[in-house]
Simulated assay, not measured.
Amino acid sequence: MALLVVDLRVKKGEQLPWIVQDSLWERIEPLLPKVERRRRHPGRKRLDDRLALQGILFVLYTAIPWEFLPQELGFGSGMTCWRR
């Protein structure tokens, strides 16, 4: 099995490519459906849509499998982003 190495270095003053800027988020957010939480059997609290999108972009940028999305980044689990 080949190991894929991705260079994650970012130049000084450059933003990480998977971080969604406020100006872009203002354009994307109105296009997403508003999901209300069920009163009865609410289940687990939903992850913020912006964080889920950033998790998706991270996986696409780094080409890692969904299940290896690092929890430390705060994007939720890989399965959460994959289901979105």
Rank of each mutant, 00 (worst) to 15 (best):
L3A: 07
L3R: 09
L4H: 11
L4R: 13
L4E: 07
L4G: 02
L4T: 08
V5L: 06
V6E: 11
V6S: 11
V6D: 12
L8R: 15
L8C: 13
K11P: 04
K11D: 08
K12I: 06
E14C: 12
Q15L: 07
P17F: 01
W18C: 06
I19K: 07
Q21G: 13
Q21M: 14
D22Y: 06
D22G: 02
L24V: 12
W25P: 03
E26Q: 07
R27S: 14
I28S: 10
I28Q: 05
E29S: 15
E29W: 09
P30F: 03
L31G: 06
L31Y: 03
P33C: 05
P33L: 04
K34M: 05
V35P: 01
E36Q: 09
R37L: 09
R37E: 12
R38H: 13
R38P: 07
R39A: 10
R39P: 10
R39Q: 13
H41E: 14
H41W: 13
P42E: 09
P42N: 08
G43P: 01
G43Y: 06
R46L: 12
D48Y: 05
D48C: 11
D49K: 02
L51E: 06
L53S: 01
G55M: 00
I56L: 14
I56C: 07
I56E: 09
F58Y: 10
V59M: 07
Y61V: 05
Y61P: 00
T62I: 03
T62V: 13
I64Q: 04
I64L: 12
W66N: 03
F68C: 13
F68K: 14
F68E: 12
F68D: 15
L69V: 07
P70V: 03
Q71N: 15
E72T: 15
L73Y: 13
G74N: 12
G76S: 03
G76I: 07
G76Y: 05
S77P: 06
S77Q: 02
G78D: 03
M79H: 12
C81P: 00
C81W: 00
R83T: 14
R83M: 14
R84Q: 10
